[in-house]
Design a protein around this nucleic acid. Structure first.
Length: 299
DNA sequence: AAACCTCTCAACCGCCACGAA
DNA sequence: ATTCGTGGCGGTTGAGAGGTT
């Protein structure tokens, strides 16, 4: 509080609050409201600075504060909001009734940050960590894929979008890594396969993760246009309307295409070795067997 | 049992934004 | 336009609880 005397200068108490102090603060606020925080301590008979009183009330004593562990749903909301807002704890807290910014900040720093790192996701950018150290453990991928929720029928679709995007990008980066390490070039056809893998991991009809393209049609030969999406959006996937769906697909594709170019320079480069192609078709499409298949492909 | 280490989270600190004078 | 008072925010700290050696 700039301009205000510091607690030391005033000789006011610092440190943990006693039950007696809590009672005084609650009693006063229940009877009179907090009014001016600066004036409150004196009026309530507390040897504390106003700032300390305000923090104690907003972070701990307020009657509407929710106690206990964060639910999975709350966790997802925090992760998603953090992805778009960054460390705007107070705004994030406003989306979680009963949770304080301080509590969310602590939860982020002590749990979620570590969790994302373990999953191979940078907690700052929310993008997959692409260095070898993180990519060389299949568990990162397994962690992501094992989340295994179907976003389309989930009311928290927005929250899941961030996770989906992260998954898609990790897969994309994995493909890139494969391409760079084994002279294997990745074409859009492979990207199409990536989409199929995601569809299967979400238990969606083939082609549904990014778009509702029937399995029997030719994979697109270039970045998908808005018209492609429009044409592919027959059949509901759970979006409120086609605009939402198109926007989401378009955004995802744009982000995927913003990564370094994966398109081979010559047609022969785009040919995948048969063994690997078979793995795409047979093993990687099999959700149950996907762990060993991924390991096989990486090896 | 004791020493040490790690983790959690309440509380503090410094800075900033904003409104009033 | 400037200063001052206040509330609010985000980063950081440190006490204490719990776990490990």
């Amino acid at each position: 509080m700039s301009g205000s005397p510091t607690p030391e200068e005033n000789g006011v108490k610092k440190g943990p609050w006693t039950p007696e102090e809590d009672r005084k603060l609650v009693d006063y606020i229940e009877k009179h409201g907090h009014g001016s925080w600066r004036a409150l301590p004196k009026l309530a008979g507390l040897n504390r600075c106003g700032k300390s009183c305000r923090l104690r009330w907003t972070n701990y004593l307020r009657p509407d504060i929710k106690r206990g562990n964060f639910s999975d749903q709350e966790e997802q909301i925090i992760i998603n909001l953090h992805a778009s807002l960054g460390n705007k704890w107070s705004i994030i807290a406003s989306h979680l009734p009963g949770r304080t910014d301080n509590e969310i900040k602590n939860f982020w720093n002590t749990h979620l940050k570590k969790k994302l790192l373990q999953m191979g996701i940078d907690p700052v950018t929310h993008m997959p960590i692409t260095d070898r150290h993180h990519l060389n453990t299949l568990s990162n991928l397994h962690h992501l894929l094992s989340l295994h929720t179907s976003p389309w029928d989930n009311p928290l679709r927005l929250q899941n979008d961030a996770t989906q995007l992260a998954k898609a990008q990790l897969l994309q980066n994995l493909l890139q890594l494969l391409a760079s390490q084994s002279s294997l070039s990745i074409s859009n056809n492979n990207l199409f396969n990536t989409q199929q893998i995601l569809d299967l991991n979400y238990n969606l009809p083939i082609g549904s993760f990014f778009q509702n393209i029937p399995i029997n049609i030719e994979p697109p030969q270039g970045p998908l246009s808005c018209d492609d999406y429009t044409a592919a959006t027959d059949g509901a996937l759970g979006f409120e309307n086609d605009n939402d769906r198109i926007k989401t697909f378009y955004d995802m594709n744009q982000r995927l295409n913003s990564l370094p170019n994966l398109i081979p320079a010559s047609p022969e480069c785009s040919k995948i070795p048969t063994a690997i192609e078979n793995n795409w078709d047979d093993d990687l499409m099999d959700v149950e067997a996907s762990d060993s298949s991924w390991k096989h492909v990486i090896e």
